[in-house]
């Protein structure tokens, strides 16, 4: 907004027009980059590779190959979310008990600022035949294993990437928890475990939900990790979309898969979304 136009608005007695100055560019942004792209995806999902109107893409999606791919993608996303939560909850819980917790939290979050691809690339070395992981397996007597290009490596690396995103919302919700509630539960005779199960966990469920949402949705669409770490062992919805858009140039089919990914996303958001 230029100075001159702002001053013109000032002379305008209608307060509304000032609001519209803010609203206008923002609504343009929403229209162009939020609404239009979703509609375009939907529109393109009805075209085949030669540009003819068709429902064939949807038929193809409901063949066993695609359904299996979608199911396994959801299954992997579930596993990744589950293990991230398993690691992150205790971490967040005990982080709140440390002395310099903000500093510790910052240190735990710091790796997210390192480019994701570099971290994935590091695992090419760590999981390689002569890498750190196999060296450890060797010393404890299990012997060298093929770790790269397996689904284990995919899940492990993804969990590694997402742990900080799970820690943060859980940490925040634990911080908001009123400590006198815990004292009250203990005073009334609840054991440490009962206190956790009946008081702490339910009250931090919002953080857990936020974390799950932040992990589950992206893990449906990770294609770079599957490409670099899992070879062709794991194909997620994201990998398939990337394949159709950038390799086979079949935008119609890619859009159809994207439509289902958007639906999955909406379901997850609604399921985890009843927060304040």
């Amino acid at each position: 907004m230029s100075c001159a136009s702002a001053r013109m608005m000032v002379r305008d007695p209608m307060k509304n027009s000032v609001r519209n100055v803010y609203l206008f560019p923002y609504v343009i942004w929403i229209g162009l980059f939020v609404v239009a792209p979703i509609l375009l995806i939907l529109y393109y999902s009805f075209f085949d590779i030669d540009g003819n109107w068709t429902l064939a893409n949807y038929k193809t999606f409901f063949t066993p190959i695609y359904l299996k791919m979608a199911a396994s993608s959801v299954w992997y996303a579930f596993l990744i979310t589950f293990f991230s939560l398993l690691v992150a909850y205790p971490t967040a819980y005990w982080l709140t008990k440390t002395k310099h917790k903000q500093l510790w939290l910052l240190l735990m979050i710091l790796p997210t600022w390192v480019n994701l691809l570099l971290k994935v690339y590091a695992f090419l070395g760590i999981f390689g035949t002569y890498g750190l992981a196999n060296a450890i397996l060797e010393t404890i007597g299990i012997g060298t294993k093929q770790i790269l290009f397996t689904d284990f490596s995919f899940v492990f690396v993804s969990v590694y990437i997402f742990i900080p995103f799970m820690i943060l919302p859980i940490f925040n919700s634990l911080e908001e928890l009123n400590p006198s509630l815990i004292d009250a539960a203990r005073d009334l005779g609840a054991s440490a475990w009962t206190t956790f199960r009946r008081v702490v966990f339910p009250l931090t469920l919002d953080g857990v939900k936020a974390g799950c949402q932040a992990v589950f949705i992206p893990s449906l669409s990770l294609f770079m990790i599957t490409r670099l770490i899992a070879g062709n062992r794991v194909i997620t919805l994201g990998t398939a979309i990337e394949q159709h858009f950038l390799v086979t140039q079949n935008w119609g089919m890619g859009s159809t898969i994207a439509v289902f990914l958007i639906i999955a996303m909406a379901i997850v958001v609604i399921a985890t979304g009843n927060r304040k």
Partner: peptide, 26 residues
């Protein structure tokens, strides 16, 4: 407005990338 605002935050990157690719091409 808030809901529409948050769409791009929760959208997976592939969706954003693919839909923007269509948008720019059109």
């Amino acid at each position: 407005l808030l809901t529409l605002n948050n769409v791009l935050i929760v959208s997976p990157d592939v969706i954003i990338g693919a839909s923007f690719l269509i948008l720019f091409t059109i």
